[in-house]
Nucleic acid binder design. Structure first.
Length: 287
DNA sequence: ATGCCTGAAGGGTTCAGA
């Protein structure tokens, strides 16, 4: 089974990239973030296209901002929108949706940005993460949390730690909140697979940041033990960040072996070649 | 000089993003 997560930065703007990407990568489950569309608009825009490809939808969107979804052709049951008890800003925002897909509890999350350390939005981010942890704690073993965490787990996950001093995404409280979530038994499958590689998932649109590979790794797939033990491959699909009209985030993809009980296997054989491996050469750092 | 892009809302500009 192939599971992917992608912050598309507007599903409406990304349609010309999203549909070909689905056809090429053939994910069985897709977690989307920043859909920026209410559920009715989502269905009107691409409900038919997704149905043709065999995907069932779990949507939790709103107009203009945020918005998450799960697309699945590996089963879709027990959909829960939002996080129980999660704070709002000031009202609850569309930042989480969960569903059971092929025996796995899949959670698609778009963690609040935080804006500035110490700000109201930053406190909101930390409280929201505590609510996420509480929900996942109910069954972490068979859960996979996928999405834009808006936290770089370590300094190895940013192109230049000094460039982010005093900013969100790298502060100790944020990293602690992420570590507490992972302490439930969730494995960071991409870092586990590529422990010493330069791996990013987000590059700012401006100033040729992608071209220079000046990015951050903030989109994560965190798998409970029963899921992590099945990981065959885990990688960032940098191809999707190239070319015309990309999102500023790249998809993250994980392939799982069949469950030991034969619960579900891949519906379509996954493509053979992941994105080209990159070298480990250190690149010039931004000023 | 965080607002060098991008997207959204709504209007001839502002806010948000990380």
């Amino acid at each position: 089974m192939r599971i992917a997560t992608w912050n598309v930065n507007s599903v409406k703007q990304r349609l010309p990239r999203l549909l070909p990407w689905l056809d090429e990568r053939q994910p069985d489950v897709v977690c989307l973030q920043e859909t920026k569309l209410a559920d009715e608009g989502f269905v009107d825009l691409l409900g038919d296209e997704l149905a043709q490809r065999g995907y069932a939808l779990a949507l939790h969107g709103e107009a203009t901002w945020n918005g998450v979804a799960i697309l699945s052709r590996a089963g879709l049951a027990d959909v829960v929108t939002g996080l129980p008890g999660a704070p709002g800003f000031p009202h609850p925002e569309a930042r989480a949706v969960s569903a059971s897909c092929g025996g796995i509890r899949v959670v698609s999350v778009y963690v609040p940005n935080g804006r500035a350390p110490g700000s109201e939005h930053y406190q909101y981010k930390l409280q929201w993460l505590a609510s996420l942890r509480e929900m996942v704690a109910a069954g972490a073993e068979t859960t996979i949390v996928c999405g834009d965490m808006n936290i770089a787990p370590t300094d190895d996950d940013v192109f230049d730690p000094e460039a982010y001093l005093g900013q969100t995404h790298v502060t100790v409280p944020e990293r602690t909140a992420l570590a507490e979530l992972q302490a439930l038994g969730l494995h960071d499958v991409v870092r586990d697979r590529w422990p010493n590689e330069r791996v990013f998932t987000y590059w700012d649109y401006r100033a040729g940041m992608f071209h220079q590979d000046l990015g951050m790794r903030i989109d994560l797939i965190l798998a409970g033990a029963a899921v992590a033990s099945r990981v065959q491959a885990a990688w960032v699909d940098r191809q999707a960040r190239k070319g015309r009209g990309p999102s500023d985030h790249a998809p993250v993809i994980v392939d799982l072996d069949e469950a030991p009980d034969g619960d579900i296997g891949p519906v379509v054989p996954p493509p053979s070649a992941p994105a080209a491996r990159r070298g480990t050469k250190k690149l010039p750092q931004a000023k």
